[in-house]
């Protein structure tokens, strides 16, 4: 009764090409989204913890808006709504990337801010006692320690976000999910296709976690878990 035909997935060369392309696109989106989102998130976290209301309130509003609405709605808004308002036409890849970056940044900001709050008070105090200025203390003392503390959380968040990004296939970005749907629409082996995709996503997330954890050990060699 069980008649699994996985070979139907690589039956045609175009299927294989689309799959490989899709994996590449998914990885590229995650790298770009991860890096840009991290930089945005850092700025947001700093603004969120600022004493200046003009910075604090907009950044808090943005973070809460993103964290309390689904990615798919944000995606449709950025890809279909914004172009109408601003009358621009970006390729969907760019719009989708923008949506991902904005989405990631809000989650990262919240984690990074928790990191700031968790750096021991004695650290900035010792830095002050050495005569270091506010900006130096933030850049050289608080920030590196905050990032090291929350790095595992950032990695987990990254992997979690990766698992939500398949939805960008909805706006025509040819990622891994898109490739799967492309194939399933043509060979009608939806079950096998999505099993393969599921495994691919699981493997990719293991890979991301491994690479990022190793990176963390390189970047924060001094860090000891308490």
């Amino acid at each position: 009764m069980i008649d699994l035909r996985f070979y139907e997935i690589w039956r045609e060369q175009i299927f294989v090409e689309k799959l490989i392309n899709g994996i590449g696109t998914s990885i590229l989106l995650m790298i770009l989204g991860g890096i840009i989102g991290f930089i945005f998130g850092l700025a947001l976290a700093t603004a969120r913890g600022s004493k200046i209301r003009f910075l604090r309130i907009p950044s808090a509003t943005f973070i809460e808006s993103v964290r309390n609405t689904p990615l798919i709605v944000q995606l449709f808004f950025v890809c279909f709504g914004l172009p109408m308002i601003f009358e621009y036409r970006w390729p969907f890849f760019a719009s989708a990337l923008l949506a991902l970056c904005l989405n990631f940044s809000a989650y990262y900001a919240e984690i990074i801010r928790a990191g700031f709050d968790n750096v021991e008070y004695g650290q900035s105090e010792a830095a002050r006692a050495l005569g270091l200025g506010k900006n130096d203390i933030l850049a050289y003392i608080v920030l590196p320690q905050a990032l090291a503390k929350v790095y595992p959380s950032l990695v987990s968040q990254f992997v979690f976000l990766f698992l939500t990004t398949g939805i960008i296939s909805e706006v025509g970005v040819e990622d891994l999910t898109w490739a799967g749907r492309y194939i399933a629409d043509r060979n009608f082996r939806d079950f096998e296709v999505f099993i393969v995709l599921t495994i691919a996503y699981a493997l990719l997330s293991v890979m991301f976690r491994g690479v990022l954890t190793a990176t963390g050990q390189l970047v924060f060699p001094w860090y000891r878990e308490k």
């Binding site: 096998e192 599921t198 996503y201």
Partner: peptide, 17 residues
């Protein structure tokens, strides 16, 4: 480790077909 989207595709499209 399984994306929610894949679960939906599997249960909503894969299994029925």
């Amino acid at each position: 480790s399984v994306p929610l989207l894949m679960l939906l595709f599997l249960t909503g499209l894969g299994i029925p077909i």
